[in-house]
Amino acid sequence: MADITVDARNLQCPMPVLKVAKAMKDVRSGQTIELIATDKGALSDIPAWANDMGHSLKEQFEEDSEFHFILEKS
């Protein structure tokens, strides 16, 4: 279970990245965030953002056409 869940469902680019970036400020190093999005662009944007920012993408899966990303703060 992630420390924080961020709901970005039904939001288009660039909102999933903006929302997860904002939430990342509220957690400490080592804590996790679960982002749920429906924007297909998030499939490439979220891993790119996490990689660039140094956060690790622990898990990524699709469930009922919703994309889940578990990210751990660096």
């Binding site: 680019c13 660039p14 990245v17 903006l18 997860v20 970036a21 904002k22 953002w49 660039d52 920012m53």
Partner: peptide, 11 residues
């Protein structure tokens, strides 16, 4: 505005 906000999201 999309790129400005996303740039900010990249710190």
């Amino acid at each position: 505005m999309i790129l400005a906000t996303t740039g900010a999201a990249y710190g």
